[in-house]
Structures are given as structure tokens and as C-alpha cells.
Design a protein around this nucleic acid. Sequence first.
DNA 1: GATGAATGAGCATTCATTCAT
DNA 2: CATGAATGAATGCTCATTCAT
Lengths: 191, 191, 191, 191
Amino acid sequence: MSEAQREKHEAILDSAFEIFGKKGFYETKISDITEHAGIAKGTMYLYFKSKEELFLAVTRRDWEKFLRDLNFRIKHADGLMSKLQRVAEHHLEYYYERKEHGKIFFHAPNNDSELMRMMHGFLTRYMAAVKEVLEEAGMPDPDFYAKAFIGMLDRLKMDILFEGEFTRDEMALRVEQTVRLFLRGSEQELN
Amino acid sequence: MSEAQREKHEAILDSAFEIFGKKGFYETKISDITEHAGIAKGTMYLYFKSKEELFLAVTRRDWEKFLRDLNFRIKHADGLMSKLQRVAEHHLEYYYERKEHGKIFFHAPNNDSELMRMMHGFLTRYMAAVKEVLEEAGMPDPDFYAKAFIGMLDRLKMDILFEGEFTRDEMALRVEQTVRLFLRGSEQELN
Amino acid sequence: MSEAQREKHEAILDSAFEIFGKKGFYETKISDITEHAGIAKGTMYLYFKSKEELFLAVTRRDWEKFLRDLNFRIKHADGLMSKLQRVAEHHLEYYYERKEHGKIFFHAPNNDSELMRMMHGFLTRYMAAVKEVLEEAGMPDPDFYAKAFIGMLDRLKMDILFEGEFTRDEMALRVEQTVRLFLRGSEQELN
Amino acid sequence: MSEAQREKHEAILDSAFEIFGKKGFYETKISDITEHAGIAKGTMYLYFKSKEELFLAVTRRDWEKFLRDLNFRIKHADGLMSKLQRVAEHHLEYYYERKEHGKIFFHAPNNDSELMRMMHGFLTRYMAAVKEVLEEAGMPDPDFYAKAFIGMLDRLKMDILFEGEFTRDEMALRVEQTVRLFLRGSEQELN
DNA sequence: GATGAATGAGCATTCATTCAT
DNA sequence: CATGAATGAATGCTCATTCAT
């Protein structure tokens, strides 16, 4: 693949990310994507076999970046609390940056088993990264705790995606609170 | 509406719940639903204005029942821990019973703002119920804690929906662990 | 199927015969057929599963009638020569009536094995009918002779299909000549 | 046109003959042909104006060779029977060699009037050659007899194209039978 | 009220042809 | 001369919705 082709490949992915993110898989027309990318409809089919495959590629690229950045952040932090804070920041920032593309998280094609497999694979890798952090700190049942931690974070994404007024400062506060809750529990707050 | 009509109305909702749950909104045909319900295609339009509206009604009914049962359970429990356990049980059992209908949670119609509003309303009411429990116990920032608790629970639903081998006993264990984590934190586990 | 439906079914076949016959399979659009039939595009799909299947049905109907009429004519003739004349008349008249629909004989869908099987079946039944006539008269190697006779007839169809000026009288002449050639050979004509 | 170009021209025709023959006109893609020929898609358009024109050229080349060889064979035979045998051999051998390319005879482009004209021209020339043979022998109505003879031969091609087990020996037998039938008629076979 | 036949807008995908390199 | 990336017109088929019976 030439340089120009690599660029077009990326441009299609960018455009698809944009449109799929805004409208979801089913409400997006191939022509929406190609028009937005400034190319002809047929051109998309030179780079991707089908609408499904394009969606898959968009999702894969996005997740791979997520995991790459996550691992980078974890590696450059010290101690359990600090590492968990990096994870939380990364998780929330990820959604924060995708505020406008919330649809992509909810409306994948329904019966695409390859997509399901892929998503499962990513979730597993995400969890494994968190699990490793917990194991290092000597925490028992790290599977469960990793899931619970990610769950807390994921619920918070709803605020980000659906509440317009969420600021970066509030996000930082949420990160801190979440990590503290995870480590110390809520009971400490009671008198 | 006569009794016979009320029954048909329910039968359509039952059938729609079944099929939407298995295939998701977009992959479900009206004829799938009406055939499964044993009625003619046109009949559905006597009871619901459109496919979207039917989906909305299905979702609404399901959530209303969820909230009704939740409040009943909370009312009949005493003390913070006990109430939180009832919430956790209810949340997980809800998904457990809907194992086979996982699609309904992910594939709603994409651009239906009324649905978004409705879902937001239900989430708010769910959170309010949990929040009340926390407030009663004197917990500060109950908004945040409620979200985090629900988040932990929600993440666990993934195991239920995607792992075939999840048993009721494991579920009970998860409930206990989750409540303990929420109240005491994970650090207690470290030596 | 109701009476009205049976009529629509026939109307679609009639229209398809007309258009496929004029343009051939590939150059015919479903919308050509349905417009000509005065119905909506989707309606065709209530009666036939696909364009291929419609073509198959058109061809089958045409051939079945051909064989039905052929057998009727043969049954009502006496003696070898007379029966062969009926066959020849029938063969040529068939094409004569379809002058305007020549395309249907040449441009079937290419890779439809079911169509190939069907056509082979019809040819076999046609040949069997002629073969029976020859066997009755005590002719040896009737397979070969049946094929040769049909071949002579089939070649003459070209004149009908491609020469505008072919009259019914010329056709009658051809019938007589062909039967005489088949029975007596051409050498008799030499002095 | 240089030598190299002439070679490429031929190569494209060879490849087109191969692919058109196997799949028919409509199911053949230009890319099928150029890939098989080992050249780029655009190159084909340097040698032929369009897909139709390429098909025309392929057909023309094939038929010209057919007629050239036919006339050669006729010229080198003596007497009516011998000449007719050469014609029959040639006709059947032609199809025998094209067993695998049957599609080319049936699936020409549908609305190409130039192709129709060309085919008509070739048939006329074929018939003229046979007619000449018959005229030489003093046969009356040679037009009709020529058509009938070619018709018998043409019907036999079906056996070749559609029956896998047809051998060269059987072909020789068919040639003899056909010529005898043509000259003496079938009645001679009856007792 | 109930039916289900009919409608037709809508869309993914293909592929002959062009043209900049 | 040769290439092959890009184009975009063209079309089979689906399915939510309507409405005459």
C-alpha cells in the first residue's frame, strides 16, 4: 500500500468514526461516510469489504489506541493508588473526548459474531491490565476487584455522555473519589 | 379498551420483548413479532403507532417493573447493608432472568430522542432509590456513591450476559463481595 | 391462494414473458416487469422469491404448455408421416408465435444450475415424445433419429426468428419438406 | 501495431475466449479477463473499445477460423457424400473442442445489434458453403437442404456440450449416421 | 376490530470505464 | 505504452406502513 493509500485508508476510518459515532451503525449510510470523506462511494469498497468490516476496523483502531495509552500510563505511575488513578483518568478522558460519538458504544451491528468476539477480547485485555495492577499490590480475587473498579468507572461515563455540563475539573474530582471509594469503601464516610 | 384488547396489547408486548431481546431493534421485523404473537401484521398498528413506539412501550414496561420490584425489596429490608444487598440482588437477578435477551440492552433505535429521555428518566429514578438508602444512613455525596454502586453492579452484568456458566450461587457470592467492597473498600484485603 | 391472487400471479408471468422475451434476462429490470404489469416492485416478491425464480417460472410455464400441446397433437394423428407432420407444425408454430420473444431462448441466467436441469428435463421429454412415435413405427436407433428430426426443425426456427418475411404458408411448405427429407432423404431429389 | 502489441492483442482474445466461454458474457468481469491474461485492467481498453467489442472480436475470430477450416476441408474432399462427411466432422469437432466453453454459444450480450448482424453473416456464409456442395451435386432447393443438414448437426452438439461421456468414436458414428440419414432418409431403416 | 396484500422509499454493493501517473 | 485507483450509475431486494375488505 502506497503512502497516499495509507492516508486514504485513515481518512475513511476517521470519517467512519465520526459518522458511526454520531448516528450509530444502522442509521449510517455508506454515502454519509464517503461524502464526509470527500470520496466516491465505490472507493470505500476498495479499502474495506463491507459496511460491517468498516465498523469493525473503526472499533478495533479505537480500542487498540485505548489499550496502548492505558498501558503507557500505568507503566509510568508508581504505587497502587497512583496507578489506579491513571486508569480512572484514562477511562474517563476517553469518554470525555468521545462525548460527541456516544452512539458508537451502543449501536454495533447486531448479529456480527466477529465483532462480539473482538469486543470480548478487548474487555479481557482491559481487565487484565487492571488485574495486574491489583495483583502487584497483593490484592486477593483480583478478577472480581478489577471488574468492580472498571464498573464504577463505566457508570460514570454516563454522566459524561449524557450531561452536557460535565467539566474537566469535575472529572478530576470523580477520579479521586472513585479511587478512594474503591480502596477505602464508603463506610469511612459515615460518622 | 376491552378485556380482550388489553390481553392482545400485552401479548404484543410479550412477543416484542422476546424478539427485540433476541435480535435487537434493527434486526427485528414487525412480522417476526406479530407472527410470534399469532396475529396479523396490521393488528400491531392498531395498538402501537410504530415500531419505535412499540420498542418504547416494551422498554418502559420492563423498567417500570424493575423499579417497582426494587422499591418493594428495599422497603422490606432493614439497615444499610441489608438494603444494599437487596439492591444488588435485584440488579443481578434482573439480568440473570434476561440472559437470553441481552440484545435489548444494546440495540435500541439510534435517533429516537424520546427513548433517550425515557432511559435517562429511569436511570435517574433508579439512582434516586439507591441515593435515598445512602442518605438515610447519613452518607455524604450520595449522588456519587449511588452511581458508583450501580456501576459496580452493572459491570458484573457482563459476566452474566456473556458467560454461559454463571450460576445463581456465584451470583449470591458476587452480591456479598460487591456490598463489602462498596462499604469497606478493597484495601482491607491487603495485609 | 385466492382467485385475485392467481390472476396477479398470471399477470406477472405474462409481463415477465413479454419483457424477458424482448430483452433477455440480464437486460431486464424487475421494475420493467412490474411497471408493465401495473404493480409495485415489491409485489413481485410476494409471488416469486427472486428474479431467477421468476425467470424459471416463466420458462417452465411456456415449456409445459409446449409439451402438453405437442402430445395432444400427436395423439390425434395417425401414422408415422402424419404424426411427424404434427410435430413439425407444432415446433415451427411455437417459434412463429414467439417471433417477438426470441431473446428468451438465448439469454437465460448463466450460472443457474436449476434452470439447466429444468431445460435438460424438457428437452428429454420432447425427445421422448418423438422417439415414441418413431419406435411405434418400428424405427431402429430412435434416439438418434429423434434428435436429428428435432435438429432439422430447430434450425428452421432461425429463419422464423430472424427473417421478418416468413409467412405461414412458407411454414407449411417447410413442414412438408422436412418430413419428406427425414423419411426419404435428399438423394431422391438427385436425378 | 508492433509485434509485441499484436501478441498482447492475441493474448487478450485468448483470455477472453477462455473466460467468456466458461461464464458467459454477463457473468464475466473485465478484471477476470485481464487478470487471467496477466495485464492491467486499463490495458484492455487500449486494444478494445468496450466489453461488447471485445466479445465481438472473440466471436469473430472464432467463427472466421471455423469457416476457413471448413472450406479447406471441403476443398480437399471428393464427391457429395465425402464432402458432407467433412462438413459434419468439422461441425461436431468444433463443438467437441469447445466442450468446456459452452457458455459462449448461449450468452452473448442481449441488445447488441452488431453482434446479431455478425452472427447472421456467419451463418449465411456457413450455409452458403454447404449449399455450394449440394448445388454442385445437382440437388434442387439447396437452401432448404443446407439448413436441414446443418440443423441435424447442430442438434447433436447438445449431446456433446451436455453429456460428459461423449467420445470421439461416438462422434465418428454420429457423422456417418447423419450423412446417411440426410441422403437416404430414415424410412429405409423400416422393414 | 382484524387482516394481509400492496406499496415504494431506501440502500448496500458491483463493475465498466476513465485518466493521472 | 501500461497501470490500477477512483468513479458513480445502476439495480435487486427489504420491510415499515397503509387501507380495502
